[in-house]
Write a protein that binds this DNA or RNA. Structure first.
Lengths: 107, 107
DNA sequence: TGGTTGGTGAAGCATGCACTTAAGTATCGC
DNA sequence: GCGATACTTAAGTGCATGCTTCACCAACCA
């Protein structure tokens, strides 16, 4: 999932797809690479659940699926919230105890 | 940035750091790999801006930086919102035009 | 019907990445 | 000062990834 978003080409493809559904060759047009390569990227995106596609005649039409995006968003925002809460507690603690005390909690 | 989040070990490190700051060896302890490897992961995390660290004596202490997380979150949520808006419009359009019409807009 | 378009699949290659080993440096405790 | 600790750095290895080429099939259309 993050793996899929890690590649810049794939992020471009996602951005393009946010503009509306597209066929494989439409998707490939602005990219300086073979159709084959694009199809391979597409496979990664589909496996990660970020994109769905269906074939009609000889044309495969792709569109983004926001469920996976939602999951990624949630992961990040949970971690961030967790840390920020902790950070706030620390700040409050430091405000009450201006000196830096010796650590001695874990192991 | 997404590249940095792509690796499961690095995500584990982030999760661990959300529990509070840690030294390099504390970070390495639960991971079945060399200190060296962990340091290399750490370098990636620092370059991506996800983690900051400072050395004091011979101990390097690490903590997450939420700014980068925020950026990632924003990227995702913008794309998602963009697509969902488009999807809504499409739904509305289909509701008004029950038949599937021929496409002929782009190129 | 035969050529063109749109996509598929396999094989190969070159680079990058995760990880290891090994050797080194700086600090801490005695 | 001396050994142990906590990293750091460099070099090397093996596997994953991104991409290409080429051969192929299926639909479209003139």
């Amino acid at each position: 999932m993050f793996q899929a978003l890690a590649d810049p080409t794939r992020r471009l493809m996602i951005e393009r797809l946010c503009d509306g559904p597209a066929s494989v060759s439409e998707l490939a047009a602005p990219l300086a690479m073979t159709l084959s390569a694009v199809v391979q990227h597409l496979a990664v995106l589909e496996e990660s659940g970020l994109v769905r596609s269906q074939k009609q005649g000889r044309v495969r039409t792709c569109q983004v699926d926001t469920q996976a995006l939602r999951a990624a968003e949630r992961w990040i925002s949970e971690r961030r919230a967790l840390w920020e809460k902790r950070f706030d507690r620390l700040a409050a603690y430091l405000a009450e105890n201006p000196e830096e005390p010796k650590e001695g909690s874990e192991t």
